[in-house]
Simulated scan of single mutants.
Amino acid sequence: MITGLDHLVVLIEDIQAATAAYETLLARKPSWKNADDGAERVLFTLDNMTLELMAPSGDSVAADRIRNVIKIWGEGLASICFRTNDIAKMHRRLDRLALKPDPIVEVDSTDALSGATMHWKRTRAATDLTRGVRMFFLELGAERPVSAATADSAVLGLDHVVISTEDPERSAALYGARLGLDMALDRTHQEWGQLMFFRCGDLNVEVVKRPVAGGDAAHDRLWGLSWRVADIEAAHARLLAAGVQVSEPRIGRKPGTRVMSLYSGTCGIHTLILERTARTA
């Protein structure tokens, strides 16, 4: 039913600054820009998903709603959207699972630069039933244009999106049993906590229960992103030269990976850059 991760939405206040930051981080140009319904949007489309930057625009109820969300929750990851090849069937499944989906709507978007138009159909599950994570489901009419690379060390795609939870059993039931994602890994470590990986196309949804207690047991949170590159040393050198604060590459927790942490240039999102070695490629 779910065929992959379609896109993630990042809410920000300054669309120009955020666009510049992600042009640097990803080493790619935006693939789509448009403004409507009280928001400006800039899309970066990679090999396996799209990152959508969204900022309030103008004076309207919709724009004020976005500003209010940013005021309450801050900038950062705001929603996740899964891809499906049959939105009607997906809607029926969500309804049977008592996730109270919104009615299916059809949406058009026109690129401000090229004049091209995209069309899709989408629905949204009730947020109070998806453990506080805003969750959409989308059937895209045609593939989006891919963002052009500006360096050989450009980010290829997303390796995993991290969701933080205080109730791993209920989260596992949501992403595995109810949404039908295949659990690829369930591991507990004294220092890292419990890690669960759910396959979603060629990337993973990672659900993490950290060892430090005290969070909201009823609500999960979109927490971080791990971007995939072919050569982590080249990406490290490129980001350092651009003035991004970044750690030295190190062996990743997942066997067969090397990672580095970014400390700036991410719009406040916890971010890793990851290289898969031959073992996991």
Score class of each variant (00 low, 15 high):
L8C: 06
G74N: 06
L262F: 02
G252N: 08
R221V: 06
A218F: 00
E52Q: 13
A281Y: 10
V146P: 02
A148V: 14
F197I: 03
A17N: 05
A39P: 03
I72Q: 03
H160Y: 14
T150I: 09
D102E: 14
S60M: 12
G180C: 05
I269D: 06
A173G: 10
P56T: 10
P56S: 08
H119P: 08
V105H: 13
Q190H: 08
P56D: 13
P145C: 08
H7F: 03
L8W: 04
L51V: 14
G157R: 02
R258V: 02
F44C: 06
E248G: 06
C200R: 00
M183Y: 03
R83W: 02
E143W: 02
D167E: 11
G265K: 06
A151G: 06
T165I: 08
T84L: 02
L225Y: 03
P168H: 08
A218W: 01
F197N: 10
I273H: 00
D47Q: 13
I72V: 10
V105R: 14
A234H: 07
V69L: 07
D36P: 03
A116R: 11
A20I: 06
G252I: 11
Q16Y: 10
W192V: 12
L179V: 11
I87P: 02
M196S: 05
E191T: 13
G38E: 15
L5Y: 00
A88W: 06
E75N: 02
R124A: 12
R276A: 05
G252S: 06
G201R: 04
R93M: 15
R41I: 14
